[in-house]
Design a protein around this nucleic acid. Sequence first.
DNA 1: CTGTTAGCGCATTCAC
DNA 2: GTGAATGCGCTAACAG
Lengths: 335, 335
Amino acid sequence: MTLHDVARHAGVSSMTVSRVINDYAFISEAARAKVLKSIEELGYRPNAVARATRTGVAQVGVLYSNPNSSNLSAFLMGAFRKAGEIGCQLLIEPTAAHPTPARAVAKLIEAGVGAVVLPPPLCDNAKILKLLAAAGVAPVSFATARPSPDVTSVAIDDFEGAAMMTRHLIALGHVDIALVRGDPSHSTSTRREEGFRATMAQAGLAVPDAYVVEGAFTYRSGLTAASQLLGLRRRPSAIFASNDDMAAAVSAVAHGMGIAVPTELSIAGFDDTPVASTIWPQLTTIHQPIADMAATAVELAAGLARRDADDDQPRRHVLAELTLVVRQSTAPPAS
Amino acid sequence: MTLHDVARHAGVSSMTVSRVINDYAFISEAARAKVLKSIEELGYRPNAVARATRTGVAQVGVLYSNPNSSNLSAFLMGAFRKAGEIGCQLLIEPTAAHPTPARAVAKLIEAGVGAVVLPPPLCDNAKILKLLAAAGVAPVSFATARPSPDVTSVAIDDFEGAAMMTRHLIALGHVDIALVRGDPSHSTSTRREEGFRATMAQAGLAVPDAYVVEGAFTYRSGLTAASQLLGLRRRPSAIFASNDDMAAAVSAVAHGMGIAVPTELSIAGFDDTPVASTIWPQLTTIHQPIADMAATAVELAAGLARRDADDDQPRRHVLAELTLVVRQSTAPPAS
DNA sequence: CTGTTAGCGCATTCAC
DNA sequence: GTGAATGCGCTAACAG
């Protein structure tokens, strides 16, 4: 099943078919329709490998900082799936393997990538962006809370996600809601906090200073935060942790103190990583379609990697859809 | 930098270079040496994409059952890395997306894969193996504890891994060691139990029936198991859980009961999944090089996918190396 | 043992 | 608008 089979079937030349496939502008509607119909009837799928021999393989680099991130597998799934589809080569580079993130970037540049996907916190790193720009390598920032207008990005609306969860908690009847913040160096942390605070304010609910505690997106930091919060004289009836790892830690501490979840304490997470459905009770959390987002990021990156020097085309900014996943860790407050 | 450049540099034809690259047997040592030298000097790297146009892309399927498995990301990393290197196409198929595993296999077969990588428990499933055989698709079993001699496999020695951990616990001075078993339908569970029991017996240590409790490799099952074990009049001083998820659950329950880890209770896991270094205290566990193993599995599978019908060549069985990773969850017993 | 010929499936180039 | 020729980098199949 090749281009030529389709061409013969449609009664045109292979070039016309090729043009239709590649969305070439100047084709008569008649020819395009015939070709499309033949493609449909024959079930033709373009051969990405063969195509790559002519166009050259678009190489796109993927940097990642946290090898244990629970999102990593979903991220890789999506990224590799898309890479396979469009026939581009992915170079995965763990920054942890290098003394500095800049060295990791340098390695990717030397390898000849045309674009790089940058998850947080790298995507907010001006130095790295500068390095990339100097080498003429296009960046695609992934999951930043504050996408720069100059940089193509795929992200979620962290503010809105936090707001959704806060609304859920409020709707359940909670009034004393505490927040465990994320790593302050990630832009997502502040956006999530803002979403939380804005929603609380809008509902006319106060947020005492003691109810907002520092965290670092790690399980361990969640342990500390939870001890602080649950040791308070006036304990919150719900704790919203800025990610699932910290929520899991809150859950463990609550267990340890003999506080029943969710009857005595509601716990909410964010991200819907595997741990959310691993622990018990399973966490109510905000789901982001990481695999799809990764696929989109790779697609955009591959596009940028191809056209060498069209610097002045508009940057694209994709916002992925969030969903509130209600599981067993949240319920109406006790009283 | 192509084959021809190398050929010219070495003063031979491109075919000779091609043959050297592909380890063709009948080449004079003189020619081979010249070519190798030129490749070295020119820094030539074969173009996997171009190669694939001639040989056809070896398609290898990967089935997986548990989308949340913490090992998944390491597995995918290794698998995709190798696939990219050797230019083969990976078709990932989650069995969960199908009513039965058999349907997932059927889909892969229809897609035209030449070989399939089968993680547990699928690799021990005779029905699936039969299906594959009927379609002439080669299986590669991944991480089975009981590799069938007829099936190419990449695995670890579960017995030895469990023995290593048990020896570590004994060396620390523990005598009352309990085991949380894994899912009885996985062959790894029984091999790990056997390794544990054999080592205990060898050290002259008794294993009371109450010290071996059922688990299912899930966090939740670990919760139940831990409650059982820690509720015992004579509490074990160390608990060896058959995987990290269950060990994490044991840790949470211990926290909940106010039992200090590791001073009052040592906890050991198996697999070295991300959760092991996420929770606190971090888990002592057995590390298996999942990414390397996955890469090997894909390589073997791609080889099998290529040669269509050489059924009678010997099956390869690769055993990966295990390492004991000592972290903070184990220590000498209290008394 | 080694070289020649002939494409793989597609896209670029330049005709028409 | 459309098509014919040409070659990407590599390797099967054949000749030597």
